[in-house]
Simulated scan of single mutants.
Amino acid sequence: MSASPELYSEVADRLLGIEIEMRRIEVWSGEPPSENALASNQPFCIDTLEFTEWLQFVFLERMRFIVEQGHGLPSVSGIAPMAEEHFRSRPEPGDALLRELEAIDELLSDS
């Protein structure tokens, strides 16, 4: 069973919210990481990227492609706990970004 157009729209809205929040707290990058860094086989590219780089250049890029192409959405998402861990030791206030990620986790897990 494929996702409804409304779900795709909600996911697209959340993806935009994630980008807006990343820009607001100044963790959005104008320069992509190297191809080698993006080619990591580790979850969240933890060995080659900062969490926010993974979020911007891997998660958001892949999810936008999925939404734009109407491909099947992931049925499980657990990004918020990783974000919580990341921002625990950072000076940036990640609370609003964490809420956006919790919302997309919930959307995808309910689909």
Rank of each mutant, 00 (worst) to 15 (best):
S2L: 12
S2E: 13
S2F: 03
A3D: 05
A3Y: 08
A3I: 10
S4F: 00
L7I: 15
L7A: 00
L7Y: 01
S9C: 04
S9D: 15
E10S: 11
V11H: 00
A12K: 08
D13I: 08
D13W: 08
R14S: 14
R14A: 04
R14P: 00
L15K: 07
L15P: 03
E19K: 12
E19L: 03
E19G: 06
I20C: 09
M22R: 00
R23D: 11
R24T: 14
R24W: 10
I25C: 09
E26T: 05
E26K: 07
V27A: 01
W28L: 12
S29Y: 12
S29R: 05
S29E: 12
S29W: 12
G30I: 05
P33G: 02
P33Q: 06
S34I: 01
S34Y: 00
E35A: 11
N36W: 13
L38C: 14
A39L: 09
S40Q: 12
N41F: 06
Q42C: 10
Q42V: 13
F44E: 09
F44H: 15
I46C: 14
I46T: 11
D47E: 14
T48W: 02
L49W: 03
T52D: 08
W54Y: 15
W54T: 07
L55I: 06
L55V: 13
Q56M: 14
F57M: 02
F57T: 01
V58R: 09
L60N: 02
L60A: 01
L60E: 02
E61G: 03
R62N: 15
F65G: 05
F65W: 13
I66G: 00
V67T: 04
V67I: 06
E68H: 06
E68M: 10
E68F: 04
Q69A: 12
G70H: 05
H71F: 08
H71L: 10
G72W: 09
G72I: 06
L73K: 10
P74F: 09
P74A: 07
S75I: 12
V76I: 07
V76C: 07
S77G: 01
G78F: 05
G78R: 06
G78N: 13
A80S: 15
A80R: 11
A80C: 05
A80G: 09
A83R: 02
A83F: 13
E84K: 13
E85F: 07
E85C: 12
E85M: 11
H86V: 12
H86Q: 08
F87Q: 07
R88N: 09
S89F: 09
R90I: 13
P91Q: 10
E92G: 01
E92C: 05
P93E: 15
G94I: 14
G94T: 05
D95M: 04
A96L: 04
A96Y: 09
A96D: 15
L97V: 11
L97W: 07
L98G: 05
E100I: 01
E100N: 13
E100F: 09
L101D: 02
E102H: 03
A103M: 06
A103V: 12
I104E: 13
I104M: 08
D105C: 02
E106I: 14
L108H: 02
S109E: 10
D110N: 10
